[in-house]
Design a protein around this nucleic acid. Structure first.
Lengths: 130, 130
DNA sequence: CTCACAACTGGAGCGCGCTCCAGGTCAAGC
DNA sequence: GCTTGACCTGGAGCGCGCTCCAGTTGTGAG
């Protein structure tokens, strides 16, 4: 282990990034391969070094992933985000807003089916002898 | 097409079942293969004939599927449901209640991440020139 | 120095839940 | 009788999102 105090706190090792992002190391490498994660720093020996910014980006990826955005669309978003603000901003907003409505729909479906589930449970309970 | 009036309304053809259940024919066959659907009736020539009861069961399967229950667990539920009421009832209730809490968690996660999503959108909007 | 363990790479493999295909049979309209 | 399209079966294939593997190199502790 590196002595904590002796390191610039600017870089995170893969292990630390795994811990803080909640993604597995394999997933981090996979995301880099497919272009969800770009320009990841390297130590002189070739080991990855993540920045706080990377971690923040991973937070966004987690948000999108947890809400069911397919990877192809995350890539589109990543590409827009990477190319910088100028005209891609409106596109990014549109993409996220569209995604927001799909999340809304997901929640609505889950809630509706949860109602059915609970009715079923109540029915079973009413039938139960005890 | 069969003339509607000439048929006992008790049986549904595969096509009708597809339409009413929302599952594809392939999925219906798949569900039968893996034991999610059992004792599906057959016409003399071997074509499937679904009953209203089958359709109701498909409704339950849809509910479970839409709420993300893995097929292995649906099978467990199907097995419990098939073996009849006596002592499996409590197990079924337990299974569904457990699933209900996972649905609750799913919704909570979605909602939380949706908040982040919306913050991001608001941030973009605040940055937008227009 | 040695050891153990972290990390590297390219590529194969996997689990899930279907979906598709080939090669046939069945049935209703003309 | 013929055609068309629904349906059958067993089995292969697929898309997604990772996950694992082999073989090698790096690194920090004792």
């Amino acid at each position: 282990m590196l002595p904590m105090a002796a390191r610039t706190t600017h870089y995170l090792t893969p292990a630390e990034t795994v811990e803080r992002s909640g993604f597995s190391l394999d997933t981090l490498r996979y995301y880099e391969r497919i272009g969800l994660l770009t320009d990841v720093g390297r130590s002189p020996s070739g080991h990855r070094r993540f920045t706080a910014e990377d971690l923040q980006w991973l937070g966004i990826l987690r948000c999108l992933r947890d809400t069911g955005m397919p990877i192809a669309e995350m890539r589109r978003y990543a590409d827009l985000a990477r190319c910088g603000d100028p005209k891609s901003l409106a596109e990014r907003i549109a993409l996220l807003e569209k995604h927001d409505t799909t999340v809304e729909e997901q929640v609505a479906l889950l809630r509706a089916q949860q109602q059915h589930l609970r009715e079923k449970i109540r029915y079973y309970q009413s039938v139960q002898p005890a």
